[in-house]
């Protein structure tokens, strides 16, 4: 595989973009940062499929496409299915010698939002992981259905207000906990599963390269702050991502072969969940006296999760 150098940013920047501008994602959207980084960390041919979501509707606005690779969109749920179909076809044609360039390496990548990964496309993704195709699934997790107006998804954390879990006098927003998709995918026995964030570009690029190199189904959950629905200023996208990784709301780690857990980033100064929540408008109501206990509850959950991750890393289970 022709991997590109990620030794430092200067060398990384000599890559030629294969994800073009003038797409219609919001200014400051982290989706395109993540997608650009994936396209830049390899020189191989890519076959990309996308679930319905912000990324799909904004990068393929008729008559334009922002993708300089093969790209396909079918339905809300089945990017994983579509790309595994393409992978099988490529394998068979290669075996029969029917490809134009039989030796050219091709990588198969599927993108999905959190709605199509955690909820709607979950069965399709699970099936594709079980069948063991050689592809990489990347979830752009912005914790709500941002494309349709910010409805709650099963990725929305406790206490966040969304258009279908509105905070008010009788409610503090979403009451249910976020689904632990990384552990679920690792439980499929996938060779490489990780949670990454765009502010740590080198860790993320390394993770992407590892996933593309690894044979078999790989899953990566990436944090993608949504300035529209999380309600912060577009210029703070990277700052909010810093807060999310430093407050351990989004710990960065990988799980190899379903059991070998490595923590990839340990924040020097762990900040409180309160500080992370104060940076966003969707948690504003939690700072009212009657809902303060929710922040404490989330902090407890986050600490317990971090403790569990460290224990798992040590015990190799």
């Amino acid at each position: 595989m022709a991997i590109t150098s990620i030794k430092n940013l200067k060398e990384f920047s000599t890559n030629n973009d294969r994800f073009e501008g003038a797409h219609t994602l919001c200014p400051g959207c982290a989706h395109s940062m993540i997608v650009r980084e994936l396209m830049n960390c390899t020189d191989d041919n890519l076959v990309v499929a996308a679930n319905t979501g912000c990324l799909e509707v904004s990068t393929a606005v008729y008559p334009f496409t922002s993708w300089d690779t093969s790209w396909i969109h079918i339905g809300f749920e089945n990017a994983a299915t579509a790309v595994t179909g393409a992978e099988v076809m490529h394998k068979v044609r290669k075996k029969k010698g029917r490809l134009k360039d039989n030796d050219a390496p091709v990588k198969f990548v599927a993108f999905g939002g959190d709605g199509s990964t955690f909820d709607i496309g979950f069965q399709w993704l699970s099936g594709a992981m079980e069948r063991g195709h050689d592809f990489t699934y990347i979830c752009l997790d912005n914790e709500n259905y941002a494309n349709t107006g910010g409805q709650r998804s099963s990725a929305t954390p406790v206490g966040a207000t969304t258009s279908t879990s509105v905070a008010g006098t009788h409610s503090y927003g979403k009451k249910e906990k976020k689904k632990d998709i990384v552990s679920i995918m690792a439980a499929h026995g996938a060779p490489y599963v990780a949670q990454l964030a765009p502010n740590k570009w080198k860790i993320m690029a390394k993770g992407f390269q590892k996933a593309l190199e690894t044979e078999g189904p790989c899953f990566i959950n990436t944090v993608s702050p949504c300035c529209t629905e999380w309600k912060f200023d577009p210029k703070d996208t990277i700052g909010i991502t810093d807060l999310s990784t430093d407050s351990l709301m989004f710990p960065i780690y990988e799980i190899i072969d379903g059991h070998e857990l490595n923590i990839l980033y340990r924040p020097k100064n762990v900040i409180s969940v309160e500080e992370y929540m104060a940076s966003q408008g969707r948690y504003k109501h939690l700072f009212k006296p009657q809902y303060r206990h929710i922040i404490e509850q989330v902090q407890k959950d986050v600490d317990a999760k971090w403790d569990l991750l460290q224990r798992r890393e040590e015990a190799r289970i």
Binding site: L9, K10, T14, G28, R36, W201, T237
Partner: peptide, 16 residues
Amino acid sequence: DCQNCWVWCPDSSILS
């Protein structure tokens, strides 16, 4: 030339 802007530009509009 640290290229921070290049890697984080969401619109691929930094010319490097």
